[in-house]
Every structure is written in structure tokens, then in C-alpha cells.
Design a protein around this nucleic acid. Structure first.
Lengths: 220, 220
DNA sequence: GGGGACAATATTGTTGACAATGACTCAATG
DNA sequence: CATTGAGTCATTGTCAACAATATTGTCCCC
């Protein structure tokens, strides 16, 4: 069951519901997050909401001022670049580790993802490509077995989610990033740790290049 | 004023007090953190304690289970290695950025830190050397201007603090790490981004080497 | 008409009580 | 003697009321 408000009820924690609603844009950057309003929205008391606000604040998704409430954090392009630089450092580590730990089943799965990506780009199914993109990065994190880095990357991805989204709908961008993803998978499959790290870093610094071009002409 | 319990009162937040008490070993790994006990200790209500627990949990310092309370997380050697690998990825980014942003005042300051380090090692003032070590890394983060990476590194350092401490009192270790720190500073001062990143990575992977040797013979 | 003091309102921070959940004790039973 | 069950206890999760604080609006005086 999924309601139109975008939350499933008390099955998952209020923190997860609120995080999802922020990431999906139900609460745009800068929006005030009033405790009593959120409590009514999610059908719980203020304490649960407060716990969620504390947690999301430490994740960098919202900012809280004492006695002045919480609001959705507005991520500048400059900060999005720093976030992606951090991701580049950590995801290259993860890619190298995945190349070391790879097995045959994982090799087949990664190849399949690239195949699906090519199809999605060819047929201009941008949404599917975006999903496959997330899937590829997630599976690489899982294969690496590096839980510490994987956890940090997850939080960083969330923080820059808005900017990442704008990237996915940029004309010509999927085709460009497809080749970078293919290079990453090639390196991981062949077990070349250094090449995997380089390919991943190269991919994310190309993302940074796009963000930097946006820096001069901010949109939305 | 500083009491024997090691907290200053309500001047700083309960989160900071609790974090400090965990890092200084007042609450050893595995210790249960009971809300009502902490509330009495810090002279506040349970809600403030709960907020602190939520935050420290997301920092990785404690683990919380629903309806079962919180306890200080026990960091295995394996996890300490992963944490240091993450730090290596992020601190090498920071070192490179510091090398790019360096100015003359910072150059003089970094040189002075190395000079002080040499003196501390020569006179076997291990505690002083440890402080200078923290100072050097912190100043490099500040000079880099990379707040995102600096923040993540801070949290990672906290998580592995216990293991780092054991490292500082290891015989012969300060002398070894001194040369690595000197190499980092040399590269940063000369503005060579790649060399700075390499030197920092080299330093932290030498830390990992020590941790790995400990893995076979865990102490304390 | 403008500025500052002051009251009114709205919102967060805190406390205390109660409900819900899990762990433990101990006896009864096979 | 081990096991299972009910009952008890300790602890966390939740809620509602109250206090503290910031914001807004109003009135008076200049």
C-alpha cells in the first residue's frame, strides 16, 4: 500500500518516512519543518518527530537551530561539488575493493546491468537508466564488503540527491556516463583494483565538471 | 570548573558531554548506557539523553536496539582498519586540497609543528607528540577548506579513537610516523597536490599495517 | 509618520506519568 | 534434570501538559 502523501504509516520509522519525503521533494529545500505539523502528518507524537529531526540533522539533510526549529537544508552547488569529491574518494576505494572481491556470479550480474543500461539509453528511458545507475553503485558497495565506506557514501548521496536528479535529466548526459560506467565494470570484472578506482574517480569527477558548469548558471 | 565525573554541566550540550566521556574511556566499549542513569549523571531529563543517544548512534559511537537500550559500540580491529581506509581516502583528498590552498602563514605554522614534533620524539614526550599529531591533521583539514570531508574525517577519527590511542603508546611508533608527517608537510608546503595525497595515504596505510599486525594478537 | 517598549501568539524545550516491550525468576511438569 | 510457562521486574517508547523562548503585532510617545 502506498498513499498519495508518500508515507506508509508506522511500519517504518518516522525517520525513514521523513527522509524519503525530503528526498522526493515533498519538502523542498528551505521549507520549515514544524514538529506539530509533522506529528499530525505521520500520525505520531512530537517525540518521534524530534528524534527523526535529530537524526536527519546529523545526516546533513536538515538544519536545526535551538528554539527556532528545523528546515530542509539548501545545498549549494559548491557543497554538492564537495560532496561529490568525498564520494569520489570513497567510491574509488569501494570500486577497488569490489575488484578484489569479485566472483563469477557478480561478474555476470554487473555485465547484465551494463547491457540493460545500454538498452535504456538507446530507448531514451531516462528514469530506468537512473534506477540502473543507483543499482550499479549500490551493488558495487555491497560486493566490496566495505561497510564503513558504503555507509558514508549512502549519506553523501542523500545529501546531494537534488543535484544528482537534475543531472539525470540533462540531455546527452546518460550517454556520456554510460561509457564511464562500462569502464568501471570492465575494470572491476577484470579484477584490476587500480583501474577500477581510476575509472570510478574519473566518472565522479566528470559529474563534478557538470556541476561546476552549473555553478555559473544556477537553475530551478 | 571541572568535576571528577568529567563533565562541565549544561554549558555544552549533553551530546558533547557524553561523546567526551565515551572517548575518554569513562564508558568502556560494551558498557550499557541507561537513559535514567545518564540523565542523573548529567543533571537533565531523559529527553536530552535520548537526543544525545540518537546522534551518537548515527555517528557510530554507540549502538541502539529498540526497547533494549544503548551500549558503547565495540570496534573490532577489522572495523578499525576499514575506518582508517576511509580516512586515508578522505584525508588524502584534504591534503591535496591543503597543498592547493596553502599560503605563507600556513607554511610557517606547519613547519613549526614538525619542529615541535621532532623535539617531542627526541625527548620521548609521547603525550605531547600525540597532541601535535592531532593538531597537524586538524590544521590540514582547516587549511583545505573542505568542510564536507573534514566533518566526515572527524567522525571517523572518533570511532576509531580507542585503537588510535593504543597506537600512540607503541614503542618506536612515533619516530616512524614522524617521518611520514614530515613528508606530508613537505609536499603540502611545496604545493604538490599529488605528492601530498600520496604522502597522506602512505601514512595512514602504515597505520593500517600496524592495526593488521594487531589483528592476530588482540590486546586489552 | 516612525521608532521603541510591551503584550500576544506561536513554537520549541522539558518534565513527568503511563504504556509497551523484553529479560529474568522460579516453580511445575514431562 | 531439562524445559516451558506464567508472572514479575526493569527499561525503553510514547504521550500530554507545562515552561521557556522567539516572533509578531500593537500601542504610545516623540
Amino acid at each position: 500500500m502506498r498513499t498519495t502523501t508518500g508515507h506508509d504509516g508506522p511500519t517504518d520509522s518516522i525517520t525513514d518516512s521523513l527522509r524519503r519525503d525530503i528526498l522526493t521533494g515533498q519538502f523542498p529545500p528551505g521549507e520549515r519543518l514544524q514538529e506539530i505539523t509533522l506529528a499530525r502528518r505521520y500520525g505520531c507524537g512530537r517525540s518521534a518527530v524530534r528524534a527523526a529531526l535529530v537524526e536527519l540533522s546529523s545526516e546533513g539533510l536538515i538544519e536545526r537551530e535551538t528554539n527556532r526549529g528545523a528546515k530542509v537544508r539548501r545545498i549549494t552547488v559548491g557543497e554538492a561539488i564537495q560532496i561529490t569529491e568525498g564520494r569520489a574518494a570513497l567510491e574509488s576505494l569501494v570500486a577497488a575493493r569490489a575488484a578484489r572481491e569479485i566472483n563469477d556470479a557478480d561478474r555476470a550480474e554487473l555485465s547484465q546491468v551494463i547491457t540493460d543500461m545500454r538498452a535504456a539509453v538507446a530507448e531514451e528511458r531516462n528514469s530506468d537508466y537512473s534506477d540502473l545507475n543507483a543499482l550499479l553503485h549500490r551493488r558495487l558497495r555491497e560486493m566490496s564488503g566495505h561497510t564503513v565506506a558504503a555507509d558514508l557514501i549512502n549519506k553523501l548521496r542523500n545529501r546531494a540527491a537534488h543535484h544528482q536528479y537534475r543531472l539525470a535529466v540533462m540531455p546527452g548526459r546518460p550517454a556520456e556516463s554510460l561509457e564511464q560506467h562500462a569502464a568501471i565494470v570492465d575494470a572491476v570484472i577484470s579484477g584490476d583494483e587500480d583501474a577500477a578506482a581510476d575509472a570510478m574517480r574519473n566518472h565522479l569527477y566528470s559529474v563534478i565538471e557538470v556541476l561546476r558548469r552549473w555553478g555559473d548558471a544556477p537553475a530551478i
